[in-house]
Design a protein around this nucleic acid. Structure first.
Lengths: 339, 339
DNA sequence: TTGTACGCGTTATCAC
DNA sequence: GTGATAACGCGTACAA
């Protein structure tokens, strides 16, 4: 079928024969290491170019028992958060000559596990996982392995290896305290069902605690699944129990908050007149809205950049902090009242 | 340094010795192929599990001269378009046991080329590229290679191998004709500078032609770079030459159109009263807006799904159409006037 | 059903 | 400065 014809095969040996030198000389010449005269090196690299010779990374990885692959697992790309993190990492790894083996898990730890198994079979130089919650089998596997692991987005005192992220409980607390200080006392929360997104759950806990601290009503939690985040936000808003009307609604993310706000306006409610609204992340959308959403800006790109640098340093034997905690910044908006 | 200690090494040979069988028996048992009695297979797989043995994909790839890696090159992930395409492909490849080596090129053909070279060094089963415009060196390289290549998002009569996408010229034509039929005659366009995004340029050509056909004024083209798409849309709107005011503005994408609309309203213009606005793609954002943006919905997820299926079939020796053209659907909105 | 060469393309090591 | 040889971990082909 698509089997390469024997005549097509151009490996290091073919180049060696054509150049009239040994295989090792070609290897050295191509890698740019010492031990080859400039003249022969020139001759060889030129010949290799002409013949269309390209080193086989799999063979090299096998020979040096060490590859230039980095595995990256993200929950989703359908939300600006992880695209930002990713673009923060890309440049660093590219410059260092690494390739990324990537997948999204859809917040499913079993899928993350299977992806990790497939990826580890390539003996990657390192692994990047999102969050600090993983399938027990994966934890066990990685504990045996010596593969460097970077956990991003969330932090913990006991990372698998190293981690770079934010404290989601505190993030929830910070945002909710700001809102509570504005006088709101009947909060609601629209997001994923409990257990799906551990980071969101931690933030929710922060919101709960902040309102408990001021003796407010319990937070009404509304879970939504499916659809894009805009639609989910709108659907979530429509599912709020109005027999017990909230005076402020927190959303999992800014995009959902936007959807929720649209639904609120469609329902005849004015924001922030009748209802306050808060998002999360400080996504791009909020930069152009005439009425900016009250939110907490997360250092997404920075997480990617610093995470990549740390992992790279780790791969080069340089020691880096196990836990790197980055800060968020409160972004008061016009969707909550002013005191 | 991080060199694996000899005692840690658990390869197929170690398992064979522990099980008291030959190396090949373990290989057969692990792969689930015929030629091993059920009892020994059971014994071996259990033992492998206990010993923590995992096959080395690089070695396998080398032995069978054929890997389970698929390279994917996208221009960016900071825009829902390619995230959607990607999520359409994911499932198909995952089920078939393939891993994706991915990167984003930022619309830079040289970066696409370098990525491709790094990736081809792993002898991937296939390559997925965005668009049909590539660096000459890459075209030459792929012409030599037998690596199956799928080009997505755009189409051409002469794909490198196979392609699945939409006709961008026609997309621009369709949307612009609809708008022109509404009576607009002074169009403007806000997007990337010419030459950056070939697909967008083709759509622009479609817009130009549609308005030329009705004898309208030439399309005023405004180029924006940098920033997120929302901010870019707003900035682009602010750069429009008002000495020659347009009656309708096309944007590269819906998100930019949203940003532009916000800027227009901030400038005291009502939409569509004073000005019409059109986007592109039918992104999620538009699903919740009280005033939906006039746009053309692109079959992004479908491109991913069908593309993945075709490439997979191709890898299995099944022949598939070289060119698969998918249709877009016009989505008239409330940001342009009604006739 | 199981085992024995040998090869996949490359690099480390040591000799010349 | 250059070359020969033995790995790296696994699969194919064939023999037992």
């Amino acid at each position: 079928m698509s089997r390469r014809r024997a005549t097509d095969k151009v490996d290091i040996r073919a180049v060696a024969e054509a150049a009239g030198v040994s295989l090792m000389t070609v290897s050295r010449a191509m890698r740019g290491v010492d031990g080859v005269s400039d003249r022969t090196r020139q001759r060889i690299t030129r010949l290799a170019q002409d013949m269309g010779y390209f080193p086989n990374s799999a063979a090299r990885a096998l020979a040096v028992t060490n590859s230039t692959l980095i595995g990256v697992s993200l929950p989703t790309l359908l939300n600006d958060v992880f695209a930002d993190v990713l673009s923060g990492m890309r440049r660093t790894f590219e410059r260092a000559g690494y390739s990324s083996v990537m997948d999204t898990s859809d917040y499913d730890l079993t899928r993350e596990l299977h992806w990790a198994e497939r990826t580890l079979a390539w003996r990657p130089a390192g692994l990047i996982l999102t969050g600090v919650d993983h399938a027990p089998a994966l934890r066990a596997r990685l504990a045996r392995d010596r593969t460097p692991v970077l956990e991003i987005w969330d932090i913990t005192d006991a990372p698998l290896d190293i981690c770079v992220g934010i404290d989601h409980l505190e993030a929830g607390l910070t945002l909710a305290r700001h809102v509570a200080n504005l006088g709101y006392r009947a909060p609601a929360y629209v997001g994923a069902p409990p257990g799906v997104d551990p980071r969101a759950d931690k933030r929710f806990d922060g919101i709960v605690r902040a309102f408990a601290d001021v003796g407010a009503r319990a937070v009404q939690r509304v879970s939504v699944t499916g659809g894009n985040s805009f639609a989910a936000g709108a659907a979530g808003f429509d599912s709020i129990d109005l027999s017990d009307p909230p005076d402020v609604v927190f959303f999992l993310t800014d995009n959902m908050a936007f959807g929720g706000m649209m639904a609120a306006q469609k329902a005849g409610l004015s924001v922030p007149g009748d209802l306050g609204i808060a998002g999360f992340n400080g996504l791009d959308l909020t930069t152009v809205m005439p009425q900016p959403i009250t939110t907490l800006r997360t250092p997404r790109r920075q997480i990617g950049e610093i995470g990549a640098q740390h992992l790279l340093a780790r791969l080069n034997g340089v020691s880096v902090p196990r836990v790197t905690r980055l800060e968020c910044s409160l972004q008061p908006g016009a969707t909550t009242r002013v005191v």
